[in-house]
Design a binder for these strands. Structure first.
Length: 477
RNA sequence: GGCGGCAUAGCCAAGUGGUAAGGCGACGGUCUGCAAAACCGUUAUUCACCGGUUCAAAUCCGGUUGCCGCCUCCA
């Protein structure tokens, strides 16, 4: 099977072949650390987490680089408004980011470079651009990239320079020779963080850090460069211009861009104020529910985030874990395998889906199929063979390894998830259990109307009962 | 204004030439004291609309409408 990857500039899937052997260099634009991350960030992080996990699993020798933008206008603005040094803000939100990634089970990248630790490489790159006539020092002390001089500007985003000029929504800074030019090096104002350079005391422009750091760690040509769709223009277009302008080599072989998380159809963003932070959401939503939700749609499609969507993903996750719980609790006995065949078929489907442009949505649908098959077999005969059990263990390990879900102990997770939101019922766990005991006493006495009354009372508060041979179980619906 | 993307059942959603995956919901059934869960069955002759190409189109081409994104910071 060949891995097919949708490549943004070509607008189609292409077979994936790394530049050299099985070595893959992947750079993904990380976050600007000036505030807490929201669900939209989570999606990008999780999508590329899964991509990196899958590539490794399939034997690619991956080097994954994801940066921190730790100096920029927003960080400075934030620092000023709080009266703190900019680096204190950056450090704090890097810590918060790491905590969020732990919560979401997003693995660290191999290299997580910070812009401020690569000023040397950045200055060097700007100097190369200047030498080649692609950059100029303007009257305001800043250095700009000369867009008109770079052939091929617009090839990633599919824009033409003439169209952009006609669009006329490009801001006009006096010092620029052309409205499309963008800053490589920004002269700092009094009191702003700054570094020495041949041009002025200043700091890197927005785009140059990614060019400098990605090529520094991965070479002049990256196999994969990723990020959110919104970065295609101007950020990635500008990165391409800088990198190819400076080094004269193709910058990126495969561009991968993830779709947005929307709320009520609108993009989730800081400026619209319609965002939900990872920290806030995961207070009462299990991280695997969020991972499942975000992976249930193809990574390039938008996902509309809503309470209902979260609820539906939680139900799906519970369904999977209930199936696993059944398998774990089923007595093991010698004999023919009844599940292994379905499990093997699933393994093939999982691979096939992932090889087809990381189609996690398809993979999860296949997992639903497997769940139905397993439940069906166990309904007929609640026993499993050694072979069944080890096949299931291996497959669950594979799913966890690639998708980062189904990593928990089923019984424990079900217990935890089923009780989330209990505070909404106005009852304590002890009160609920007391009512259940009363109901069971009534049932024993065959006073079913009283038993049903208790069950209805609980149901009205959102507690659903389930009578099993091992006793009565309950969950917050 | 320019560029790009999307439109599949009540809802969510996969599917880039071969005759519509999956989930939720709803309804009927098995099971159950009754429920719940699980399982079985039903729920799109049809993929926004109009043309075209083809033996064959949700899938390709042209047009129309609607929604979203980018062009300013953005995952």
């Amino acid at each position: 099977m060949t891995l097919q990857v949708y490549n943004t500039p070509y607008r189609k899937k292409q077979p994936f072949t790394p530049l050299s052997g099985n070595k893959v260099g992947m750079y993904v634009c990380g976050v600007t650390v000036y505030d807490m991350c929201h669900i939209g960030h989570a999606r990008s992080l999780i999508v590329f987490d899964v991509i990196s996990r899958f590539l490794r699993r399939k034997g690619y020798n991956l080097t994954y680089v994801r940066n921190f933008t730790d100096v920029d206008d927003k960080i400075i603005a934030r620092a000023n408004s709080l009266g703190k040094p900019y680096n204190e803000i950056a450090e704090r939100y890097i810590d918060e980011f790491i905590t969020d990634m732990d919560i979401l089970k997003v693995r660290p990248a191999d290299i997580e470079p910070k812009a401020t630790e690569h000023i040397g490489q950045i200055v060097e790159m700007v100097r190369m651009l200047e030498d080649k006539g692609l950059a100029y020092l303007a009257d305001d002390g800043s250095v700009y990239f000369r867009v008109g001089k770079f052939k091929g500007y617009g090839k990633l985003s599919g824009r033409r320079i003439e169209d952009m000029i006609a669009g006329a929504r490009v801001d006009v800074e006096e010092a620029k020779r052309d409205p499309l030019d963008f800053a490589l090096w920004k002269k700092s104002k009094e009191g702003e963080p700054s570094w020495d350079s041949p041009w002025s005391k200043g700091r890197p422009g927005w785009h140059i850090e990614c060019s400098a750091m990605s090529t520094h760690y991965l070479g002049h040509t990256l196999d994969i460069h990723g990020g959110g769709r919104d970065l295609i223009f101007p950020h990635h277009e500008n990165e391409t211009a800088q990198s190819e302008g400076a080094f004269g080599a193709d910058f990126v072989r495969y561009w991968i861009h993830n779709g947005f998380v929307t709320i009520g159809g609108d993009k989730m963003s800081k400026s619209l104020g319609n965002f939900l932070t990872i920290r806030e959401l995961t207070k009462d939503v299990h991280p695997e529910v969020l991972r499942l939700l975000l992976l249930s749609r193809h990574y390039r499609s938008p996902i509309d985030f809503s309470k209902e969507a979260v609820h539906s993903s939680q139900q799906a996750l519970v369904r999977f874990y209930e199936m696993l719980d059944r398998v774990q609790k089923s007595p093991v006995k010698d004999g023919e395998a009844s599940l292994a065949g379905f499990i093997t078929a699933f393994d093939g489907n999982l691979d096939e889906a992932m090889f087809d442009d990381f189609n996690t949505a398809k993979a999860i649908a296949d997992l639903h199929d497997l769940t139905t098959q397993v439940n069906k077999v166990l309904d007929d005969n609640p026993c499993v063979s050694h072979e069944d059990k080890s096949a299931m263990d291996q497959t669950v390990a594979e799913i966890s390894e690639i998708l980062g879900i189904l990593e928990e102990n089923p019984a424990q997770l079900l217990e935890k998830v089923k009780r989330t939101g209990i505070s909404e019922t106005g009852l304590t766990q002890a009160e609920i259990e007391e009512l259940i005991e009363q109901r069971n006493a009534a049932r024993k006495a065959r006073d079913f109307s009283k038993a049903d009354e208790i069950r209805d009372t609980l149901k009205a508060k959102g507690i659903i009962l389930k009578d099993t041979p091992e006793g009565t179980e309950w969950e917050k619906g």
